[in-house]
């Protein structure tokens, strides 16, 4: 088996160990968030936020071209990532506020940000290239694909550190606000009527979602990021009916997807991201076949 060969080769083992170490916090975070996303029907919001990142890339490219972002390492990549995160946060707040005030139906609000950001991002990247050429600057060295569609195999130490820090922040925020988030997610209108400030709770949920999605995208790609928001939670809700059990089952499904997907990728030479999604989907299909729920 190729997996065993890799485990016996120190160089290859280090590469896959880094992939595992970077993927583990992201999948744990995704597993927990997925339950909230599924029951609160935020899956499409996740799509909207993830695609809004294209707009963030465009703005980062423009800032780089006019000299407002550093060109050289080690700060270039973190600065670009920070701009993308901030843009996605703004988009998530926009989606959250527009749908909360019922100014627009939620799917329309998501569509506006998704399409607008992608189109705006594409134009800004093009303009930024021209501006950078005129000014003799380096411009966006990385393709936006490499920023948005990261490959988990090949994750470096910085990626591993980023993943653990973000996961700790997201999981910490979810635990800290667990009671309010659960009440809000179950019955937002009543939560307001009970005196809960629902708008900050909604914005918190959207922010946590945005940060988690952008981090997952950077390491694993857009498809895997959105799959992580939907499949583990959907799987867990098929097999369990108590909140604690559902959260554990969802995390387990996500981690199984990561490890199983990496093994599948090695054995078949398929790309790692899609392989992980295939395992996540297969786990969901298996859960649908389970006749009874765990308590």
């Amino acid at each position: 088996m190729k997996t065993l060969e890799i485990l016996q080769t120190p160089e290859l083992r280090a590469i896959y160990l880094d992939a595992l170490l970077a993927g583990l916090p992201v999948t744990i975070m995704g597993g927990v968030l997925s339950v909230l996303a599924v029951v609160k029907r935020l899956g499409f919001a996740g799509q909207g936020i993830s695609h809004s990142a294209f707009g963030g890339v465009g703005i980062a490219a423009m800032l780089l071209a006019v000299g407002l972002l550093p060109e050289s390492e080690p700060w270039a990549a973190p600065a670009q990532f920070a701009v993308i995160v901030l843009f996605c946060l703004a988009a998530s707040w926009g989606i959250g506020l527009l749908s909360h005030r019922r100014t627009l139906p939620v799917d329309t609000a998501i569509g506006v940000f998704l399409a607008g950001s992608m189109a705006g991002g594409a134009i800004l990247v093009q303009v930024a290239r021209e501006v950078a050429n005129e000014r003799g600057r380096v411009g966006l060295v990385q393709s936006w694909e490499s920023i948005l569609f990261g490959a988990i195999v090949g994750a470096g130490t910085a990626d591993v550190a980023l993943a653990w820090i973000v996961a700790a922040m997201v999981l910490g925020a979810l635990w800290w606000h667990r009671r309010r988030l659960l009440f809000w997610a179950f019955d937002e209108e009543s939560a307001r009527a009970f005196g809960m400030p629902a708008v900050p709770v909604r914005l918190l949920a959207m922010s946590v979602l945005a940060v988690a999605i952008v981090t997952a995208m950077k390491l694993m790609g857009v498809i895997l990021a959105t799959a992580l928001l939907a499949l583990p939670g959907a799987t867990a809700l098929r097999v369990a009916s108590r909140m604690t059990t559902v959260l554990l089952a969802s995390t387990l499904a996500a981690v199984t997807g990561l490890i199983g997907g990496l093994v599948l990728s090695v054995e078949t030479d398929w790309p790692a991201g899609p392989s992980i999604v295939v395992v996540l989907a297969a786990t969901f299909a298996l859960a649908c076949a389970v006749p009874r729920r765990l308590t």
Binding site: R41, F186, D187, L237, R242
Partner: peptide, 9 residues
């Protein structure tokens, strides 16, 4: 108005 799929007792 409620999300009855929530795994709450």
């Amino acid at each position: 108005e409620m999300e009855m799929a929530m795994p709450l007792t």
